[in-house]
């Protein structure tokens, strides 16, 4: 098992490279322009960076994420991934949803192997890799269980393993643990941090929980609704991975207040 490597580099190292994702004056409207979902989004995300998108419901977080995934077209502006304009789903980007979206008729392992199947033939190496990812997600004993036999948290971990199986270096997570209870959620957040650190992926994480956003991210994009725009960006100075206890510190609380304030400024 090669997956228990030491954690990935600190924030500064990640920030050193060129932008993996870049948006210029990005704008998205629905209903023929009557609803502005995202307006004037400008940002650059560097390799290995973990970004949280935080904001209330309907502020355009998911829309932004879906545009990066290539699932939605933008109305105007520019959006590049690896210096190429996004024109549809891209193999270097993978997405995970609030629901586990597992296929009931496949075992955990077969679910994890789905992206490989879609990309082409499945080799034994792929199978071993999938098994390793399940191990990474702590589900080795459940590799041959079907989704209906798993708890909600376990299902999301399978979905997470599947996300990594895509081999994408950009991971988009749309409130992945939103439907889970607090304990499971915190546990999975720690796991997520460990895992994305190990594979050194660039991550965009959507949530409406401020503490969660700060706990996970290198930078927090604070979004406000109507029209959806990025109201401010809060840098998180802690090294990853971080212990959950960090959330009790005064510095952490100060960050929470700053994020709150950013909302307040706009509202």
């Amino acid at each position: 098992m090669s997956t228990h490597a030491q954690s990935a580099g600190p924030v500064d190292a990640a920030l050193a490279g060129p932008a993996v994702i870049a948006a210029r004056d990005l704008r998205k409207t629905f209903g023929g322009g009557s609803v502005v979902a995202v307006e004037d989004a400008n940002f650059e995300i560097r390799p290995g960076e973990f970004i949280s998108l935080v904001g209330p419901s309907g502020c355009g977080k998911s829309t932004l994420l879906r545009m990066v995934a290539g699932l939605l077209d933008r109305t105007s502006g520019s959006l590049t991934v690896h210096d190429a304009e996004v024109r549809g789903p891209h193999h270097s980007v993978a997405m995970m949803f609030q629901k586990p979206t597992l296929l009931d008729w496949r075992t955990s392992l077969e679910n994890v192997l789905l992206p490989t199947e879609i990309a082409g033939r499945v080799t034994d190496a792929d199978r071993h890799r999938a098994m390793d990812l399940l191990e990474l997600a702590g589900l080795r004993d459940f590799a041959f269980s079907f989704p209906t036999q798993l708890s909600g948290g376990m299902q999301q971990r399978v979905a997470l393993a599947r996300l990594l199986q895509t081999g994408a270096d950009i991971l988009l997570l749309d409130e992945p643990f939103g439907a889970l209870d607090e304990f499971t959620r915190e546990h999975l957040n720690v796991e997520l941090m460990r895992i994305v650190g190990e594979v050194n992926a660039t991550t965009l994480f959507v949530t409406h929980n401020i503490a969660e956003a700060i706990f996970l991210a290198d930078r927090v994009f604070v979004m406000t609704p109507r029209p959806g725009r990025i109201a401010g960006i809060v840098e998180v100075p802690f090294e990853r991975p971080r212990p959950p206890s960090i959330q009790q510190g005064a510095e952490f609380n100060a960050l929470v207040s700053r994020v709150r304030q950013t909302f307040g400024d706009r509202g």
Binding site: G70, P89, M95, F97, Q98, L103, L114, E117, I118, T166
Partner: peptide
């Protein structure tokens, strides 16, 4: 479920693959 269809699209699945799988 629309989420599952989105998931397949995000993986770059073809129409045939989405249908079959």
């Amino acid at each position: 479920e629309p989420e599952k269809v989105s998931m397949f699209r995000s993986m770059g699945a073809s129409k045939l693959q989405t249908f079959r799988k």
